[in-house]
């Protein structure tokens, strides 16, 4: 594992060095800003980036993601418990998953204006299909023999749900979170591009009009770090509770 990390780090460093050299050779900062220039700019703009823009974007991501998880868990459970709900929603979910949410985000701007609500809806729509489908598949994967074993013990439907179905679905739920978290970050930023007067995405877009290359990239750097930190947290949780994935 350690060796793999080392190999990946070497590649990352090589890419950064090449990028730096290329940027220095071309020497047009608003076309190719160098990594060093981006970090410098991030430091210069730290107050507005971290204290003004970041909280706005982070709020969109966190609230959107939480709402999405909430809806997904309720819908997936309902689909698993009631065949009618499954018959109604499953095909629709599979199809709607293919809609590029970013392309319909401008609609939300039309409906809700330049508000955070519009951006939160974009995040929810970008992530909840995938989480719902994964949780549903996870619940469906429950071993019938384990359910029967519980029935012979005299377990109620609720006990079977809590002690067998939920743990069976948990690893797939975590997989879904890891899969969709980057989408949440991306969609929050893009939604800010499309219709906002605050947030990291909005800030990045505004910097394009001032031809300030490093300042365009600075919010991207922060967004990347947010996504990486989120993934690290999810991986940590997964290592604690999702390790039995292959045994379910």
């Amino acid at each position: 594992m350690k060796k793999r990390h080392l190999a990946a780090s070497i590649l990352a460093i090589v890419i950064l060095v090449l990028w730096q050299l290329l940027a220095m050779k071309v020497n047009i900062p608003h076309i190719i800003p160098s990594p060093v220039a981006i970090v410098k700019k991030t430091w210069e703009l730290r107050e507005t980036l971290f204290l003004v823009q970041l909280p706005v974007t982070l709020y969109t991501i966190v609230v959107g993601f939480l709402i999405s998880v909430g809806i997904s868990l309720v819908l997936a459970t309902a689909m698993e418990e009631f065949e009618v709900v499954e018959a109604m929603f499953y095909p629709v979910l599979v199809v709607t998953q293919t809609i590029p949410v970013m392309c319909i985000s401008p609609l939300f701007v039309l409906w809700f204006g330049y508000t955070q609500t519009a951006r939160i809806i974009a995040v929810v729509l970008a992530t909840f299909f995938a989480i719902t489908l994964n949780v549903f598949d996870g619940l469906k994967r429950t071993d019938v023999r384990k359910i029967e074993l519980m029935q012979t013990i005299g377990a109620s439907a609720l006990q079977i749900f809590l002690h067998v179905k939920v743990p069976t679905a948990l690893p797939m739920f975590l997989t879904a979170l890891k899969m969709t978290l980057p989408w949440a970050v991306i969609d929050a930023a893009v939604a800010e591009w499309l219709g906002a007067n605050e947030g990291l995405g909005y800030f990045s877009k505004r910097m394009i009009s001032t031809m300030d290359g490093p300042a365009v990239f600075a919010p991207v750097l922060i967004l990347t770090i947010i996504a990486l930190m989120g993934m690290a947290i999810l991986n940590l949780i997964d290592k604690k509770v999702g390790i039995y994935r292959s045994e379910v």
Binding site: K146, M150, I153, G154, Q159, H163, L170
Partner: peptide, 17 residues
Amino acid sequence: FPWKNVEQNVMIPLVVQ
């Protein structure tokens, strides 16, 4: 149950009851 250790597995019927 792979998500439960030996003790917890043995206790399943007791938890149900």
